[in-house]
Nucleic acid binder design. Structure first.
Lengths: 248, 248
DNA sequence: CTTTCGCCTTGACGCAGATCAAATTCGGGA
DNA sequence: TCCCGAATTTGATCTGCGTCAAGGCGAAAG
C-alpha cells in the first residue's frame, strides 16, 4: 500500500506517508489511483538476475525491500558495479525499452513495478512525479561522481573505509540510531561484490579488511558482522574531508 | 538567440531550431519570452574557474561554446574529473544553491545562464523543460556509469584509447564528416586534464600515447593534433565490445 | 558426527602504473 | 629571429595491487 511512496514524495513531504494521503496537499488521488492500476510486484531470491543488459524491459520499478546491484561486464569478464539499489531507489529509464546494465538481487528483493508505457503517459500529465524523478536522478548522478573519485584516485584502504562508511551511514539512517556510540551492522555484500563495487580484487578487499581489523578500526564477528568502535577514526581513513553527516 | 535551444528541445524536435519557432508545436512563445528575460551570457578564458566547489551558485547554465570540466579535489590535491561539458550541456542543479564541483573553462568558454530562482519557478509550469532536463540528466548518468567502468576496470592503454574514441566521435558529430576514412582532430585537453579524466598520471598518459603512436594506431602532429588512420583498430583497443556508432 | 561446497583469508611473487628526475619540445613574446 | 617558461616526453626505479596457489572456516546436507 505504501510502496510507491518514494516515487511520489520529495524531501518536503517526508512526514506524509501515503496512508495519510487524505491530508497531504501533494497527493492527488487521481494519480495515485492511476499508479495503483498499473503497478505490480515482483520478488527475487538472493543471487537472481532481474534483467540482463540488452534485454527488453517493459517496466520501471522502485525497490521495496532488499538490495540489488547494477553492473557492467566487459567481454573478458571484468565487472564493475555502477549502482547499488536500496529500498526506495528507482530502476529503469522512462523512454528506454532496453536495459543498459545487469540488475541482480543481492539479497531477497521485492520490487514495485509499473508498466513503462502507461507510466510514461502518466508522467506527461503529472509534473511533480516528473520533478521527483529528476531530483532522484540528480542525486544518483552526484553519487556516481563521488564514486568516480573513489575509483579513480583512492587507495585500496581508502576505498574499503569509504564503502564501510557508506554502509554504516545507511544503517544509522535505517535504525535512526543515536550517533556517537559504537556502531554494529551486517555487510550486505560478499567480498566479491565489494570488489566489483570498488574496482579491486577479492583478495585485496579481504587483505584491507584484515588490516583495518588489525589496526583496531573495526571488529568482525564472523565474516559479515562489523562493529565500528569509533566512526571518526574510520572516516579519517576514507580520504574524504567531510564527516558525511555521521558525526553530529 | 538560438542559445537555449538545447534545453528546450529534445531529440524529437532536432530539426526545429529555435529560429523556426513559429512552426514548431513544442515551442511556446510564452516560455521562450520568459527564458529570454532571465537569461544572460558569461564568458571565460581558457583556464579560468567558473565556480569553486562550495561556492554559492545562483544560476543554472547551458554551455554555448567551448569546453569546461567538473572536477573533485581531495585535501591532499588528488584530483578526479567527473564531468566534461561540451556545447549544449547543462550546468548546475535546480534546487541547489551551492556548487558540488569545481567548474573550469578548458578552452575559451561562453555560457548561457539563467537565474536559478526564476528558472525553477518557470520549471513548475513547463513540464517539457522538466522532461528535457530529466532526459539530459539520465544521459549524463549513463555516461558517468560508462566512465566508472573505465576508471575501475580498464588498463591505461584501454583508458587512453577510450578517451581518444570519445573525442573522435565528438569530432565526427561536430563536422558530420563521412565515416570510414582517416580521422583528424585536435585534442581539447592537456595531458594533465587527460590524466585527471582517466585516473592516471601525466607520465602514464604520455607514455601510452607514445605507445599508440609507435604501434601505428594514431599519428601526432605537434602535441595536440591527432590523426587516426583506422578508427576500427583504435576501437579494438578500448576494451568495449561495440563500435560506439563510429563505424557505419 | 563427517563431508562438501561456497566463501573467505593468507602467502609468495610479478607487473602495471606511480614516483622521481632529467631532458626535449613547443609556443608565445621580445 | 631568438629566448624563456610551460608542457611534454623519456628513463630509472619503486610499490601497491593483481595473480596464482594453498588452506581455513562455517553452514547445510548426508
Amino acid at each position: 500500500m505504501a510502496l510507491h511512496e518514494p516515487l511520489l514524495h520529495g524531501k518536503d513531504c517526508g512526514d506524509c506517508p501515503i496512508r495519510h494521503r487524505a491530508v497531504c496537499a501533494r497527493c492527488d488521488t487521481d494519480e495515485l489511483d492511476q499508479l495503483e492500476k498499473m503497478k505490480f510486484y515482483r520478488s527475487f531470491q538472493a543471487g537472481q538476475t532481474v534483467v540482463w543488459s540488452g534485454d527488453r524491459m517493459d517496466f520501471v520499478a522502485s525497490v521495496v525491500s532488499g538490495i540489488a546491484t547494477l553492473t557492467q561486464t566487459m567481454e573478458d569478464g571484468r565487472r564493475q558495479m555502477v549502482g547499488l539499489l536500496l529500498p526506495s531507489d528507482f530502476v529503469g529509464r522512462p523512454g528506454r525499452a532496453v536495459a543498459s546494465y545487469d540488475v541482480t538481487a543481492v539479497s531477497d528483493l521485492v520490487m514495485c513495478c509499473f508498466r513503462r508505457k502507461p507510466f510514461e503517459d502518466m508522467m506527461l500529465g503529472t509534473p511533480h512525479v516528473n520533478q521527483r524523478l529528476l531530483e532522484m536522478t540528480l542525486d544518483e548522478l552526484d553519487a556516481a561522481r563521488e564514486w568516480m573519485l573513489l575509483l579513480g584516485r583512492k587507495t585500496a584502504r581508502e576505498k574499503i573505509a569509504s564503502l564501510l562508511a557508506i554502509l554504516a551511514r545507511r544503517d544509522v539512517a535505517l535504525r535512526q540510531r543515536a550517533r556517537g556510540g559504537p556502531l554494529r551492522f551486517d555487510l550486505p555484500l560478499t567480498r566479491e561484490e565489494m570488489a566489483d563495487y570498488l574496482g579491486l580484487t577479492i583478495e585485496t578487499v579481504s587483505r584491507q579488511i584484515s588490516a583495518l581489523k588489525r589496526d583496531g578500526l573495526i571488529q568482525l564477528e564472523g565474516t559479515r558482522q562489523v562493529t565500528v568502535p569509533d566512526i571518526r577514526r574510520l572516516l579519517e581513513e576514507t580520504g574524504d574531508d567531510s564527516d558525511g553527516g555521521m558525526v553530529g
